[in-house]
């Protein structure tokens, strides 16, 4: 580890909560957004499957 970093952790730093909050919010928000899009994607996949089955049934009639 770089010696200046070791020094950094020895000193009382008031900035830490803001830095860690920034990183935390960044990733939680990105993951939440991607998760939301994936849920919609899965719902659409299921819908396509149901519609395909309906079309196949109709073609068979």
């Amino acid at each position: 580890m770089d010696p200046t970093n070791e020094e950094l952790y020895r000193l009382a730093i008031t900035d830490a909560p803001y830095v860690l909050a920034a990183y935390g919010i960044l990733w939680v928000a990105l993951m939440a957004y991607v998760g939301m899009v994936f849920r919609r994607l899965m719902r659409l996949e299921r819908e396509v499957q149901v519609l395909e089955e309906s079309m196949e049934r109709r073609a068979g009639e």
């Binding site: 991607v34 899009v37 994936f38 994607l41 659409l44 819908e47 396509v48 519609l51 395909e52 109709r58």
Partner: peptide
């Protein structure tokens, strides 16, 4: 890479939505 992935996943969703609409209209 994350930016490209998000764009790409959203484009996939958009194409699926269009497909669903076309299938619904056909039915």
């Amino acid at each position: 890479l994350v930016g490209y992935a998000i764009y790409s996943i959203r484009m996939n969703e958009e194409r699926l939505e269009e497909r669903v609409e076309i299938m619904k209209e056909a039915l």
